[in-house]
Design a protein around this nucleic acid. Structure first.
Length: 274
DNA sequence: AGATGCACCTGTATGC
DNA sequence: TGCATACAGGTGCATC
């Protein structure tokens, strides 16, 4: 599922449902989805903690607790974190349930079981979740064409792989990488060491508008993704590149093409993306 | 060091 | 119908 716009939507939709509540019971149904600390310690330590705020870093969802502990979640491909009334039917791959003192449940479900949870203590250094390796947030003021060029222009990789590299820029995934390169009119296989300054400008300038318009539509759902309240995203019909192979390019009319870059399905216009 | 490919899982779609 | 294969929003690790 979830790239930056989807996690941001989960963060925003969970916020009013869980902030200020206390976790009065926690069940870990599948211990292996807890990456740190051990599942038993995780379950015990999170109990009786009050939820202070929700946050996001790259594609990581953060739930800050009053004690200074942070519940970190990564939903990977098919994960969901949602707050529901307890009578709501259980997703068949529900791996953790946190009962809140407002009568609702915060549930983590993930069909493919790639998703992970971490509980980080106040002041504990995080060398394991992957957050420490993340690059800049796209909405950071320091992000721009100069940053991207500096980080990528000496590497010999396709630009699509460059903007998918979470240690360069945090939050883009397979859908929005294709959308960004379509908007920038840059071919996804263009090598980062052959990009012009104009192309660096176009790519950098496309990123925030693409992410913001997806956020404004609550993200993109094509199969599994739901927000924190269990609603689908509405951005799918607005995609210009992803999944559009065989259809006319919305800019020039040429037939859109699908290929593979770095093992990932990639959609682009062979005429107007250079 | 940097680039590439595969492993981790389950579910769905497609073709024979 | 049954079976084999390919593919899916992500990341980490082994290997060259």
């Amino acid at each position: 599922m979830p790239e930056l716009p989807e996690i941001e939507t989960v963060k925003r939709t969970l916020e009013p449902l869980i902030c200020g509540t206390t976790i009065i019971k926690s069940q870990i149904i599948r211990p292996e989805i807890v990456a740190h600390p051990g599942a038993a310690e995780f379950r015990e330590r999170i109990c009786n903690q009050r939820i202070a705020a929700t946050g996001r870093r790259g594609k990581y969802l953060l739930i800050h607790l009053d004690s200074g502990d942070t519940l970190i979640a990564h939903l990977r491909m098919t994960g969901r974190m949602l707050c529901t009334p307890p009578e709501h039917p259980l997703h068949p791959h529900t791996h953790a349930i946190f009962t809140l003192d407002n009568g609702r449940e915060l549930r983590f479900a993930d069909t493919r079981r790639f998703g992970r949870l971490w509980l980080l203590g106040a002041g504990e250094s995080d060398d394991f979740s992957g957050i420490h390796r993340l690059g800049i947030e796209p909405f950071d003021q320091a992000f721009g064409a100069a940053y991207l060029k500096e980080k990528l222009s000496r590497r010999h990789i396709a630009i699509k792989q460059g903007i998918l590299d979470q240690s360069v820029i945090a939050g883009l995934g397979n859908i929005y990488a294709d959308e960004v390169l379509f908007a920038a009119a840059v071919a996804p296989f263009r090598r980062t060491d052959s990009m012009t300054d104009t192309q660096w400008q176009s790519v950098a300038a496309a990123i925030c508008p693409i992410l913001n318009s997806a956020i404004s539509r609550n993200g993109t759902t094509f199969s599994d993704y739901l927000d924190g309240a269990g609603r689908e995203g509405e951005n799918m019909p607005y995609l210009q590149a992803y999944k559009r192979a065989g259809r006319a390019c919305n800019r020039c009319g040429e037939t859109m093409v699908r290929t593979k870059i770095g093992g990932r399905s990639t959609f682009y216009c062979p005429n107007c993306q250079k």
